[in-house]
Structure formats: C-alpha cells, structure tokens
Amino acid sequence: MSGGSHKRPWLAALFAVLVPGLGHVYLQAWLRALLWFWMAVLSFVLFVPEELVDGVGSVGDAMALSTELPIEAQIALFVVIAISAADAYWQATQTRQRVTGQRCPHCGREIDDLELEFCHWCTEPLPGADAEADKPEPTSR
C-alpha cells in the first residue's frame, strides 16, 4: 500500500459506509476495493427482487426502494457494508502502525520522521538522540 502513512482510519471507514470499497480506494488498496465493491453488487443481485428494481428510474425511486427491501436483503447489505467499513478502518490502522510506530515520550504524539533528534510536535529531544551525537566518528586507517 503506497501512501498510507497519513490516512485517517475513521475517514476510510466513512468512505466504506458510503460505498463499499471506497474506503479501500482511499487507502490505495485496489484489490480489496474491487472485492468489497463486487461483494456489495453480488449481495444486491442475489437478495433484491428483480420486480423492485424494474420500477426505479430516479434517485427518489431508489430511496423508496430502500424502504421496500425484504429483510434478507437489508441484512445482507448491512453486513457487507459494516464489514467493509471495519476492514477499511483496520487496514488504515495497520498501515499507520507499520509506517510510524514510534511516539514521543513527552507529548505522546506520533513521530513521522524517525531520523529526527527531536519531536517535531513539542521540540523536546528524543531518547537516543544524545547517544547518537556522542558516538565517535569512525576513523579510517
């Protein structure tokens, strides 16, 4: 997953609730995005009666359709949407932990650049920064 270091888990979950797979598009997890989108389409095709879909011609009709869905279709679509959102949230948290994983001992916020000798949030020196500075330079013989 490229570019996942600054992705917000709650935003990925929100996108996945709006359209299953959209949270994964936000995370640039392309295969998962396709899988979740097609799971939602498959659930719709399998559980929504064709006679309900035939009369839909506008967004207002589609909204009315949601009130007429059989309970099996509602449950199937809810489960796909809920698990897609949970998976998007989990994926975003896993990516953030892999990329950063270190917190400032003074302010507790995540440190983005592990090469810094100080916290870029509170500017306090990080542990181990003094040890690195005190190391003698290697000499060549």
Results as ranks from 00 to 15, higher is better:
T100W: 15
D112S: 07
E115I: 09
L31E: 13
S58K: 08
W30I: 01
W30E: 00
P136K: 07
T67I: 01
D87N: 10
C104N: 11
E115P: 12
I71Y: 15
E115M: 11
H24R: 08
D130R: 12
L52I: 01
M39L: 13
A33G: 05
E124W: 03
L77D: 15
E124C: 12
A13V: 09
L126P: 14
R109K: 11
C104M: 00
Q74V: 09
Q97Y: 02
R32A: 12
G60C: 02
T95P: 02
A131F: 06
P49W: 00
L114M: 05
L52V: 11
G4C: 09
E110S: 13
S58I: 02
D87F: 02
I111Y: 08
L14S: 05
A85E: 07
P136M: 05
S2Y: 11
Y26M: 01
S140G: 14
D87P: 05
E117P: 04
A13N: 12
R8A: 14
S5F: 01
I83G: 08
G60T: 08
V25K: 06
L31N: 10
V25L: 09
S66A: 14
D113C: 00
A92K: 01
L11C: 07
Q91L: 13
L11A: 13
V17E: 10
E68F: 04
V79Q: 03
A16C: 04
A73M: 08
L65D: 14
I75C: 13
W10I: 01
A86G: 07
Q94Y: 01
W121K: 10
W90N: 13
P49A: 03
A33L: 03
T95G: 15
D54N: 09
R141V: 02
A85Q: 04
P9D: 10
E110A: 15
P9M: 02
G128E: 00
D87E: 00
S58E: 02
V79M: 14
S140D: 08
L52A: 12
F47L: 00
M39T: 03
P70C: 03
V56D: 15
Q102R: 13
A76S: 05
C119Y: 07
L52E: 00
L126N: 14
A76N: 11
F44M: 07
C107I: 06
C107A: 02
P138W: 07
V80S: 03
A88K: 06
G23N: 03
V59F: 01
E137P: 10
R109S: 09
S140H: 08
P49V: 04
W38I: 09
H120E: 10
D61M: 01
T93R: 12
E50Y: 11
E115W: 15
G23P: 03
R103S: 07
L22C: 03
